[in-house]
Amino acid sequence: MKIKQSIRYDSERSSQFTKEVVSRPGGEMIQACIQCGTCSGVCPLSNYMDRTPRQIIYLAREGFGDEVLHSRTIWMCTSCYACSVECPRGIKITDAMYALKRMAIERGTYPRRFPIPVLARTFFAMVRRNGRTNESQLAAILFLKTNWLQLLNNARLGLDLIRTGRFSMFKWERIEGRAELNAILSDDGKPE
């Protein structure tokens, strides 16, 4: 039996982390949390999380940034907003999860090979090029970049979609105002 200490020293805490979460859209109200657990109770994904949403809010409030940003929980949020509308304290939990995801990406602490950032990059490139997205292409590229085996697994799905006229891998939806769109998206200071 391996014995592990579970004590936390105050030096592991960072009030700066709390301040940062509170300063981001959605994070404002986390300090109002009464730890009732309604968010976890209504969350359809809470049973797949390593920490419940309530614990994430608590840890963020206390400044245990490492625990928060390394948790699988923030990546399991599907933004169904059940927690946000049910929270008795009016905490915008879904938006707080978005804020935490972005903080994790900025710090590079998201799970390796986790496809969300890849998906986002692919998505952005496609929107920038065409102004619209093509779900079939998006899925194919995502699978190629992250787990190409999935492409094979989904071959049958592809056939189904072709059969029902829902597949549009080779059809280009492009908008006229691409220059306009590029002007909107060309924010120099920001990485693409």
Partner: peptide, 14 residues
């Protein structure tokens, strides 16, 4: 000439 809405998956990144 509508464009993609911005979609929720992307929202989490940018």
């Amino acid at each position: 000439d509508w464009n993609c809405c911005g979609a929720t998956a992307y929202m989490s990144v940018d």
